[in-house]
């Protein structure tokens, strides 16, 4: 499409069709996330579907940009953008999943293994005894602070 001579026009066609495939598959990742959001039963399985366009979809689309720009200095910028997304998405997913587990937004019968239950229970017990101790200390020593 650019000022290509007859020599590398076949190369252009290959790159353009590869770009088209990347773009359409990257868009299909978003569609998969949308369908998963509608059809899956609880928060955890919806989170599984929701991460597809955020990581793989973004990678495919950014690779399509890099293929179309045809300059080498674009690739480090695209890589930084993708790595930034790769660093922030797991943290956000961890926070949402943690909040979802602690507020009981899940179907326990759909889980095949629940390794967090014992940890959460122990933390809740420790917090309960600590709150009890702090409450007694507070009622015992009034007026000191």
């Amino acid at each position: 499409m650019t000022d290509s001579s007859g020599f590398d026009s076949g190369f252009d066609v290959v790159i353009d069709s590869l770009t088209a495939v990347f773009l359409i598959v990257g868009a299909l990742m978003s569609l998969g996330a949308g369908i998963g959001l509608i059809r899956f039963p609880d928060l955890m399985s919806r989170m599984h579907a929701a991460t597809k366009p955020q990581v793989l979809g973004l990678f495919l689309v950014l690779a399509a940009i890099g293929l179309q720009m045809r300059t080498w200095w674009v690739w480090p910028i695209l890589l930084v953008a993708w790595i930034f997304q790769l660093l922030t998405v797991p943290v956000a997913a961890h926070m949402v999943g943690r909040a979802g587990y602690r507020t009981k937004h899940l179907h326990p019968e759909l889980l095949s293994a629940d390794e967090l239950e014992a940890v959460v229970q122990r933390a809740a017990e420790a917090k309960g005894t600590e709150a009890l101790r702090e409450g007694s200390k507070h009622t015992g020593g009034t007026g000191n602070k």
């Binding site: 770009t19 773009l23 990257g26 868009a27 990742m29 978003s30 996330a33 949308g34 959001l37 928060l43 919806r46 989170m47 929701a50 366009p53 955020q54 979809g57 973004l58 689309v61 950014l62 399509a64 940009i65 293929l67 179309q68 956000a92 949402v96 909040a99 979802g100 507020t103 937004h105």
Partner: peptide, 23 residues
Amino acid sequence: LDRVLASDVLLAILGAALAIDMA
């Protein structure tokens, strides 16, 4: 939390649209 997750997906779809426009 479902709404937060869905709005995150909506944001990813917007990002994909911006990137497709760039490509």
